[in-house]
């Protein structure tokens, strides 16, 4: 059981890392700011999401697991709002 949990953790966290790295590649390679913003938000949400998912079986108790999920929801929610605001800044800079 513990081995199974560990395997799950390794798989999910690795998947999360792939998304983080993909996000970084997107940020470096994409030509315009709006695409870079897109790459950034995808990487954040999915990357952190899979890392949280992978860490869930390692939690000592239910409360810790709930806190982990809550952190992910918080980052999702605030990240979406932040991306909206950054996009507004971008639009204003392009059309002054």
């Amino acid at each position: 059981m513990s081995l199974l949990a560990d395997l799950f953790t390794v798989a999910a966290v690795t998947l999360g890392l792939v998304f983080f790295v993909a996000g970084t590649v997107g940020i470096i390679r994409f030509p315009d700011s709006l695409s870079r913003l897109h790459a950034l938000t995808k990487a954040d949400n999915l990357g952190l999401g899979f890392i949280v998912l992978g860490l869930l079986p390692q939690c000592a108790g239910v409360f810790d697991a709930l806190k982990l999920l809550f952190i992910w929801l918080l980052v999702q929610f605030a990240g979406a709002t932040g991306a909206q605001l950054v996009a507004r800044v971008l639009r204003r800079e392009e059309r002054p």
Binding site: S33, D44, V52, Q58
Partner: peptide, 25 residues
């Protein structure tokens, strides 16, 4: 652009949360 630089704060935010969680476990 200024928007590009603002992305640094977002990137750092989720990245450091991830690193902090991984260090915790």
């Amino acid at each position: 652009s200024r928007a590009d630089r603002l992305m640094a704060v977002q990137l750092l935010g989720s990245g450091s949360v991830g690193a902090c969680l991984l260090l915790a476990f």
